[in-house]
């Protein structure tokens, strides 16, 4: 918990136009809004493809944010908190990949209703960083060792997905530098970690470590690749996430 926020007070993050896509629910909102956050390089479109519509269909107003270009971690966190605070009600933050890193930091700033870290690239510890790098080198040696590491279709998708069309819409910016420990979430929201044991970007052990940090166990979807929201079996993880959310929200009353 940081009370003295000199960075915010003396050099506020410059504002930008933000792209937010949404699929809303007709009538009264009974469920809290969901805010999906992809990693930089992927846009809000990756969630608009399947997950937003699916979530709205189950009664959750769903929003997705396109990360700003050339932003550092602080700017991305700023954008997530800005968009969350602009939603009509307390939001559920759902980050994927590096977007989960952004969400884990935003949770220290904004009292989310709940949070989901999907295939999180948190790189919170040195061990984690090496493990992630190791997995990536194994799956994609040429792409990983570039200054701007690339992911290939084998890492992102399992067989049978229209990978080329998706890949052509992605860009691969530089890695986000993350300093300091993962903050304790304000207002202690429930946090769920989801991933796949067959993800070639996030090693299984990494998923366990992130889940342990939030005092839980990861929810696993074997056979799926890193891009859970675009992969052939996209319906399964989002349904599990929404089931978990429904249970958490009713538990509080």
């Amino acid at each position: 918990m940081t009370l003295l926020r000199f960075d915010d007070w003396t050099s506020p993050v410059p504002p930008v136009e933000r792209e937010v896509l949404s699929r809303l629910v007709e009538g009264e909102d009974l469920q809290p809004p969901l805010l999906f956050v992809p990693g930089p390089g992927m846009g809000a479109w990756v969630f608009a493809e399947h997950w937003l519509t699916h979530a709205a269909g189950r009664g959750f107003p769903a929003y997705a944010l396109t990360p700003r270009e050339n932003g550092d971690l602080r700017a991305h966190v700023h954008d997530v908190v800005q968009v969350a605070a602009a939603l009509p009600r307390q939001a559920v933050l759902i980050g994927h990949g590096t977007g989960a890193l952004v969400v884990s930091r935003a949770l220290g700033r904004y009292p989310a209703r709940a949070a989901v870290l999907a295939a999180p690239v948190l790189a919170a510890s040195v061990t984690d960083r090496w493990a992630t790098l190791g997995a990536a080198v194994k799956a994609n040696p040429l792409g990983t060792l570039r200054r701007r590491p690339r992911l290939n279709h084998k890492q992102l998708f399992s067989a049978g997905t229209d990978a080329d069309a998706y890949l052509s819409r992605m860009t691969f910016p530089r890695r986000l530098a993350a300093r300091g420990p993962v903050p304790r979430p304000v207002a202690s929201p429930p946090v769920l970690v989801v991933g796949s044991p067959d993800d070639r970007v996030v090693p299984r052990k990494s998923l366990d470590r992130v889940a342990t940090h939030y005092a839980g166990a990861p929810l696993l979807f074997p056979g799926m690749a890193h891009a859970l929201m675009l992969d052939t079996g996209w319906a399964e993880p989002i349904d599990a996430v929404l089931d978990w959310l429904t249970k958490q929200l009713s538990a509080v009353g």
Partner: peptide, 11 residues
């Protein structure tokens, strides 16, 4: 320096 720390005003 004026907004709530967990609910920023629009930037």
């Amino acid at each position: 320096l004026t907004e709530f720390p967990d609910f920023p005003m629009p930037d």
